[in-house]
């Protein structure tokens, strides 16, 4: 971590993850709740964002509800082809996550697309452009949990 967080930062981060006020003056209201001034709230959020602690302030959407299709994929990528393969895969805007994991299926990525057809098309393009066919498509059949909040002590 490249930034030391003080207790006010922690409280602020916990609060604005789930209780961002939908009112005309949200930062003033956050400040009133945490006992700090509105401009301090704004400065702290700015600082936390610039330092990469916060990613974004806005809506987190339910992709299925919005009509999007998605899946997790796992691919067997030879060790010397990781970066070129990642470059091909990551160039699709619907790839939201891509990790190397410790397994012979070593590249794990998630794809979202506006329809199932578009999703299949992206996966086919990935196979064609990388020449790698060792790929498992693992769509969610049931969702038990998607945690969006991260509590700081």
């Amino acid at each position: 971590m490249n930034m030391k967080l003080d207790p006010v930062d922690n409280k602020l981060i916990n609060f604005i993850q789930s209780n961002f006020p939908l009112v005309p003056e949200p930062y003033r209201e956050i400040g009133a709740t945490l006992g700090i001034r509105e401009d301090e709230v704004i400065d702290r959020i700015k600082h936390l964002t610039e330092n990469g602690v916060l990613r974004r302030l806005g809506g987190i959407f339910d992709s299925r509800k919005l009509g999007y299709a998605g899946t997790l994929c796992a691919m067997k990528v030879p060790g010397d082809r990781i970066s070129e393969t990642a470059a091909v895969i990551n160039s699709f805007p619907g790839i939201t996550h891509n990790y190397i994991r410790e397994h012979s299926f070593n590249m794990w990525f998630t794809v979202l697309a506006p329809s199932q057809d578009k999703l299949d098309e992206i996966i086919n393009q990935i196979k064609n452009r990388t020449g790698i066919n060792d790929i498992m498509v693992l769509p969610a059949e049931k969702i038990f949990k998607i945690r969006v909040n991260f509590d700081l002590d």
């Binding site: 005309p24 990613r55 991260f150």
Partner: peptide, 30 residues
């Protein structure tokens, strides 16, 4: 402003927006 706030609340109520607020990088949070 009022109409926008109400629309956001409605999108939340109907489940299109799962959550409104900040997203964190847990990697950078220890």
């Amino acid at each position: 402003e009022e109409e926008l706030i109400n629309k956001i609340k409605s999108l939340l109520d109907r489940g299109y927006i799962r959550r409104f607020g900040a997203t964190v990088r847990h990697h950078d949070l220890g």
